[in-house]
Amino acid sequence: MIQEPEPSRSEASSPEVPELEASEPEATRRAAGGSESSRANRGWWDRNADDYQVEHGTFLGDDRFVWCPEGLDEIEAELLGPMEDLKDKDVLEIGAGAAQCSRWLAAQGARPVALDLSHRQLQHALRIGADSVRLVEADATALPFADGSFDLACSAYGALPFVAEPVTVLREVHRVLRPGGRFVFSVTHPVRWAFPDEPGPEGLSVASSYFDRTPYVEQDEDGNAVYVEHHRTVGDRVRDVVAGGFRLVDLVEPEWPAWNTQEWGGWSPLRGNLIPGTAIFVCERS
């Protein structure tokens, strides 16, 4: 069942779907702090979780561990380590969505905990079936676990792109990992921020500065953020990893495979064959 560290949160079994926004939000680039980002993204994922699972559920599967739109699968990549070594490991998945990755980890004999900011995403985890996975609704910047609770941690496009201060998340992950623990996370490849988020030819020309860290914000007619995503350069990400207390073991940039013919937002075979779409950081706790 979903663990709710704050008593004010509603029951996870509630079938109600949050109301949709009355009008289309305005896309802009502006400053957005930690609390605004958290509030906006919790609301966005609660409103859009149903559509997200309908659109991407088949690709993600019910119990696959897919790192990125390119389709890199943990069963082949073994970024968390050899599959046989996952047995009896305590694993934290951050930004778990419907907990597909955690369900795969449980099938390998691990003891996963799936954490997400979005109540509605975790309801989908219950819908699919989460008997083998502990679900926790919480913010990744304040993990509700004791020091040294986990052997491994992972995040496939979860939390880190959406927080204003990623080092806070990294330090929290470092705190809850045991010495020698590995944290692997995937994010949009930073170079993509210089290009329009379009899957076709129009997405192949540089449109803005790669070095512009101004957050991407979607806001309502009153100027309130309803979605926020934060840009970090490759160098920023490496420095964040180090500042969080980790050692960077590998930086994986998945190539677009020939079998993958889908378009997923700005990801497509056209762009994937020319520029990287995902960066996966493999880190170890000292």
Rank of each mutant, 00 (worst) to 15 (best):
P82R: 14
V113R: 00
T58P: 01
L143Q: 04
E36Y: 04
S155P: 11
E36C: 05
S23E: 14
L92D: 01
G129A: 08
T261P: 02
H231D: 01
E4C: 06
G158F: 00
E6M: 06
S102D: 03
A12L: 10
R103K: 14
D139Y: 09
D50E: 15
N41R: 11
E11P: 11
E284G: 05
Q262N: 10
G266L: 09
E21A: 10
R213V: 06
R182N: 07
R42N: 04
G34D: 15
P276T: 13
Y210Q: 07
E284C: 07
H230G: 01
K89D: 06
K87V: 04
D212K: 11
V241H: 00
L115D: 02
S286C: 09
R29T: 07
L152C: 10
D147R: 12
L72A: 13
Y52D: 02
S102R: 01
E253S: 12
V184S: 08
A106Y: 01
V228G: 00
S38L: 12
S14L: 09
S37G: 12
Y52G: 01
D50Q: 12
H230N: 12
H174A: 13
P112I: 05
P199M: 11
A153N: 07
I75F: 08
G129K: 10
E93C: 12
E16S: 12
S132D: 15
G33M: 08
S286P: 13
G95T: 03
R47G: 06
P7N: 11
V187P: 03
A114E: 02
C283I: 04
H231E: 03
Q219L: 12
L270A: 08
R120N: 13
G245Y: 02
E4H: 14
S8F: 13
E11A: 11
S268N: 08
P7V: 02
L251Q: 04
F65G: 01
T214Y: 06
N260R: 09
R247H: 10
D151Q: 08
G43I: 00
